[in-house]
Each structure stands twice: as C-alpha cells, then as structure tokens.
Design a protein around this nucleic acid. Sequence first.
DNA 1: GTATGCATGTAATACGTTACATGATTGT
DNA 2: ACAATCATGTAACGTATTACATGCATAC
Lengths: 184, 184
Amino acid sequence: MIIKTSHLGFALLGLIHQKPRSGYDLRKIFATTPLMHFSDSPGAIYPALRRLHQKRLITTYGRRNRLSRRKQVFRATSNGINQLKKWLLRRIRRPDVVWYMDELMLRLAFMGQVLGRRATIRFLQAFQSEIAAYVSELTKYHSSAAATMPLSGRLALESGIEEYKAKARWSQGALRQVRRKRRI
Amino acid sequence: MIIKTSHLGFALLGLIHQKPRSGYDLRKIFATTPLMHFSDSPGAIYPALRRLHQKRLITTYGRRNRLSRRKQVFRATSNGINQLKKWLLRRIRRPDVVWYMDELMLRLAFMGQVLGRRATIRFLQAFQSEIAAYVSELTKYHSSAAATMPLSGRLALESGIEEYKAKARWSQGALRQVRRKRRI
DNA sequence: GTATGCATGTAATACGTTACATGATTGT
DNA sequence: ACAATCATGTAACGTATTACATGCATAC
C-alpha cells in the first residue's frame, strides 16, 4: 500500500532518513543549500512534518510533553523507509520528465544512499530513454510549428528543447560516473 | 496598482490577448502544445477565468444569459493588457531564475508580440546576467561541497548546474537572433 | 534582565487536482 | 434518435504562502 505523500513530504522524509533531524534543521537545509529548492517557511514544513508523523512515517523524540516548544527531533520509521524506497523505485513516465523534473532529481539525490549502485544505474538508464523520447517529440513539434510561430515564442520553445538536451548529455556523464565506481 | 494574478492567470490573459478565445480553446492549447505546461483541467481553468473576469482583466461576449452553457469567448480589456505589460516588464530577480524559470519563459513567449524588439532584448540581457550570477554561485557551492557529498547527490547538483549553463548558452543565441532582425 | 537567535506553531487565504455533473451541437 | 464531441461548471480536498505569535536558551 502506497501512502500518498507530497514532494515536500518525501524531501523531508529523505533528509530525516539520512539522519535524525528537527524541523529547524530541515528549514536551515532548504534555506542554505541549492540542492533542492523548497520553501523554508515554517508554514509549509511543520504541517508537512505533522502529516508524516500522523501517517507513522516518522517518529519524534527529545520532547517530554506535547505543549513544550523544545526542540524535537524526528527519525524515519521502518514504515517510512519503506515508503521512501517505493517512491525512489517508481517507474519514470512521461509526465515525470515533463512536469516533475525536480522531483526526479530529488529522487536521484537520495537514491545512491538508500538503494545503492544498481538501482541508480537503472534509474539513470530509464531517465535517459524517457528524455530521449521527449526530446524527439519536442523536436518534431518544433519542425512542424516553428515556421508559423512568432520569434519570441519560438525562442521559448527552443529554450525548453535545449534544457532537455542538456539533461540528456548530463545523464550520459552521470551514468559513466556511477558505472565507473564499485560502490557509491 | 498591480493586481495579484497567478501564473496560470497570466498565461490565460496572454493567450486571450493574442486573440479572443473560449475556455475550451485555452484547454485545447494546454492539452496539445508543449509550449507551456499548464494543466488543461477544467477545475483549474474555469475558476481562473472567472477570477480574471471579476478583476475586469477580461470581458466576455457571445452568451446571452448567465445560465446558458453555450460557448463564451473572452477578450482582454485595456486594463488586462496593462496588467499583462506590467507583468512582462517586471525586473528579473534571483528568485525568478531559481524558482520560476517557467514563468520567465512564458513571459518571453508573449513578449515579442506585446512589447516588441527592444523590450525583448532588454529582457534577454537581464536574463543572461542573472543566470550568469546564479551559475557562478552554484559553481562556487559545488567546489566547496562536492568533495563531501555522496555521488548521487553530487550528480543531482551537477544536473542543475548544467541546466542553467544550457540556459546561458541558449540566451546567447536568442539575443543574437533577436538583434539580427529589424522587427520581430 | 534583556536582546538575540533558536525553535515551533497557527490562521487566513488562494490555488490546483481530482472527480463528478450536465448542457449544447454536430454528424449519421 | 443517438453517439460523440464540444463546452462549461462545481464540490471536496490537500497543500503552499504569508503573516503573525510565542516559548526556550544563551551570552552579555
């Protein structure tokens, strides 16, 4: 059974799985690293943590009673780790590369540690082939529509195509790097 | 006075400004072109159109009474066109390239037609310099953090850097193309 | 003892998603 | 007459944003 969880929820769960962290720790990560650009606003993070907690994906310790405002640290439950793995293993489909590229890169960022080398290679291969298919679709659309598009519209389209081509090239190199290593 | 409008709202307003369109026309555009990936769901579009209407940014014609379900066509009011221009002319800031790249490309797509060549050149110049600054920030972060990052996390970071570098290259060519033409 | 940063939280609001519902038009 | 497609809409729900509020810890 998969438990519905938002992108932010998985980001938090993944970070908590790396090591136990408090809400404030997580906010600082979002505020100071460019790795994944989530909002560091408390209005997003604390409710999201509460939802993870209600679903038993994380547990809390370090706080005696529910009214205190002392720091409280979360860690992933085995249930939570399971959900995290299921999320990382989800098949890559067209909508993922079209609409949720950030989520795919977030998954990759956690993947090595959680699932290891083989799964990361499989992920990158699937990513590559889905990207290639989408680039070819975009290119086809471009060659059929470009002539009738206004210049600035065409440029915007080309910007998208170049972005995906860059992802294709990057994934080549990424695959090579992962393959080169015995363990990651 | 700027009237708060969502990205989807501006996308709809921009398309309606090109020529009068119905909600269904707009849904079809989102469903069949990769130009801007908004959802084509009626639950997003019709409420958004109603909001634009309430703010007097678009007017409707082609429908006698409010209860009919006959096709209704919207067109931009002068007020709406003003708001559209204000949006297109907004200064590009760091959060725009970090979080709202899609919105920037959407603005570019409308810009040529609405604001003309000079404004498009200024936009692309501003874009280029903001991207360059961000790439350099990311690169700095990379060289300080890469050594201690797990491989798959590092790859995810590099994917982001490559994406922004691709945007930088693209904007070079885009600027050249716009400059080359007398009118766009 | 009080200012500063650590740490957690809530309320109002806006919006998108999903699923459902239904009227109008056209072709056969 | 009927199906298919055109066309518009609503209700329930989840969640992000913004702004505000408040308790804890420490150092001076």
